[in-house]
């Protein structure tokens, strides 16, 4: 059994503080995703509500915004903000700030689209009935529209969170030391003593990401079933 662990390169995990370092690396990635998730949800709700107003100017701007996010890979956006802004505008954006800007920019668009989608999926009858019952606009939104919207929105928004966590793995490409980078460092440092570390380390990182995202996915699916 122990020879199996060694030959698969899992032994490095138990050397020194390697496992703790990997977990700390994961924490760096999770922290970035958590901050961008919170910002995206707040901004996304505001933008989504603006989009559901169907004003022509807002429509054009939001269409362009959504299309940019829809077709530009997040990695390209990261490079534009991190390298492009430095060169073209002379701004010195730190890697963390660049990733927060990009993930919030992307997440807000996705969230806004979800908010708009669930707002317009509420039938007009709901508004009309509320007004017919003598409710004010505020009351209509507060007691009729928002509760229904939230129920449709929640599973989709939670699903977006897992997508954002997965996407933050890209930040290693602009030099942030997160779990993948730490993994590479451990593999490099132990190349002589455990040449198969790449298998063990990347399998562990695979599992760590799975453990971070799976519960959230399950929650999303549970809420979706409940809402249906």
């Amino acid at each position: 059994m122990s020879s199996f662990i060694t030959s698969m390169g899992f032994d490095v995990l138990f050397k020194g503080t390697n496992m703790i370092r990997l977990l700390q690396g994961l924490l760096v990635a999770l922290k970035i995703s958590l901050i961008s998730v919170v910002l995206s949800i707040v901004l996304g709700i505001i933008i989504g509500m603006l989009m559901s107003l169907k004003k022509p100017v807002i429509n054009v701007i939001s269409r362009i915004y959504l299309e940019i996010v829809r077709i530009m890979p997040q990695m390209v956006l990261l490079f534009i903000v991190y390298f492009g802004a430095t060169k073209a505008l002379g701004l010195n954006v730190s890697a963390t700030a660049a990733s927060l800007i990009v993930f919030t920019f992307w997440g807000s668009a996705e969230m806004a689209d979800l908010v708009r989608g669930s707002l317009i999926s509420i039938p007009v009858i709901q508004y009309e009935s509320s007004y017919a019952l003598g409710m004010t606009k505020l009351q209509t939104y507060l007691y009729v529209i928002i509760p229904q919207t939230v129920r449709r929105l929640l599973p989709l928004a939670i699903n977006l969170i897992t997508r954002m966590i997965k996407t933050t793995s890209l930040v290693m490409m602009i030099g942030i030391v997160e779990v993948l980078k730490v993994g590479q460092q451990i593999i490099e440092a132990n190349r002589k003593t455990s040449p198969n570390a790449a298998f063990g380390i990347f399998a562990t990182i695979f599992l760590l990401y799975f453990l971070a995202c799976w519960p959230i996915s399950l929650l999303s699916r549970y809420l979706e079933k409940k809402a249906a």
Partner: peptide, 10 residues
Amino acid sequence: NTPLLVQLFF
């Protein structure tokens, strides 16, 4: 539930 980058590295 895992990123493509991690899958590719593996």
